[in-house]
């Protein structure tokens, strides 16, 4: 495929650059907008280069928030988002690891039934079951709490299925060798299976963290107290302010801030993530 034809090289690079441009342009405009005062954004032409209000804008949203949108500092919202995303991610990974372990390694009655029931919940994302879930959470008194934000989203058929498939590829002899070596079920799980699943866990962590961070509908429904607002729903509230114009420069600054944690997670875990997607452990 890779041949020594210079013009092909040039063309493929050109295509890559164009694609990157298409993806990056909105991000760039967002960033530029977040560094200008509001007046600059309301007049033509829209600025294409960063302005001089970078620090002022960001300091303002992080600490004070936007008065018209309730005045919740973005810093607080980001911490809420972080707590929610981490709880969902860690909870999902922990529960699906254990569930997959039970389904693959233990013979109990209705084992396959359990598996298929879990599998079927793939067809029922949050949006579909939102009313009954809301009712349950409300009855349990978990509205306006971190528990309410994260627990209903923790169960994960996808992750359980993924771990199940991975566990099935682990040779049976490994479990037998561990039994002979005197490792009970718990020790085998912690000493052998978990380290082997390391790359899978990392890959899932990235995917699930972004999933958790980007939750919008659910936090919007169950939080009414401002101290529990998450940043993704917060942005929407900033845009929908009544009786005044949206403060675009601050909204854009918030957007940039909201994008940062997923980017950090992807960048730091990139190596493990890619390994998890391509590597088949021997």
């Amino acid at each position: 495929m890779v041949e020594n034809r210079p013009y092909l090289n040039v063309i493929s690079h050109l295509i890559i650059i164009i694609c990157i441009g298409i993806v990056m342009l909105p991000v760039w405009i967002t960033f530029v907008a977040s560094t200008h005062p509001i007046e600059a954004l309301l007049t033509q032409p829209i600025p294409m280069w960063p302005g001089d209000r970078l620090f002022e804008n960001y300091a303002l949203v992080l600490t004070a928030g936007i008065a018209d949108a309730g005045g919740v500092p973005v810093g607080v919202m980001m911490i809420n988002s972080l707590i929610m995303a981490l709880s969902i991610t860690i909870g999902k990974i922990a529960i699906s690891l254990i569930a997959a372990y039970a389904i693959v390694y233990f013979r109990f009655p209705f084992r396959m039934t359990c598996f298929w029931i879990i599998f079927m919940t793939l067809m029922l994302p949050v949006e579909v079951r939102i009313l009954p879930t809301f009712k349950v959470v409300a009855d349990l008194g978990m509205l306006n709490s971190y528990a309410g934000l994260s627990i209903p989203l923790i169960a994960s058929a996808t992750a359980t299925f993924l771990f199940r498939q991975f566990f099935l590829t682990v040779p049976e002899e490994l479990a037998e060798a561990a039994r002979i070596d005197g490792a009970g079920p718990l020790k085998f799980f912690i000493d052998i299976l978990m380290p082997l699943s390391r790359t899978n866990i990392a890959a899932l962590f990235v995917i699930l963290f972004i999933y958790g961070w980007n939750q919008y509908l659910w936090p919007l429904l169950i939080t009414t107290e401002e101290s529990f607002y998450t940043v993704v729903m917060g942005i929407q509230r900033m845009v929908n302010v009544s009786e005044s114009l949206p403060v675009w420069h601050l909204v854009m600054a918030t957007t940039i801030l909201a994008m940062l944690p997923p980017v950090i997670v992807v960048v730091t875990m990139q190596r493990l993530f890619v390994k998890g997607l391509i590597e088949t452990e021997k």
């Binding site: 040779p171 002899e173 490994l174 037998e176 060798a177 039994r179 002979i180 070596d181 082997l196 021997k282």
Partner: peptide
């Protein structure tokens, strides 16, 4: 009795070494 309690050791056809452990740890684990 559980395999561990029988005081036996087994060598498997595909070796069944723990892939994430060094040779030292493989031998030391039991």
């Amino acid at each position: 009795l559980e395999p561990m309690e029988r005081n036996i050791a087994m060598v498997f056809q595909n070796y069944a070494l723990y892939p994430h452990m060094s040779c030292y740890d493989n031998m030391a684990y039991g």
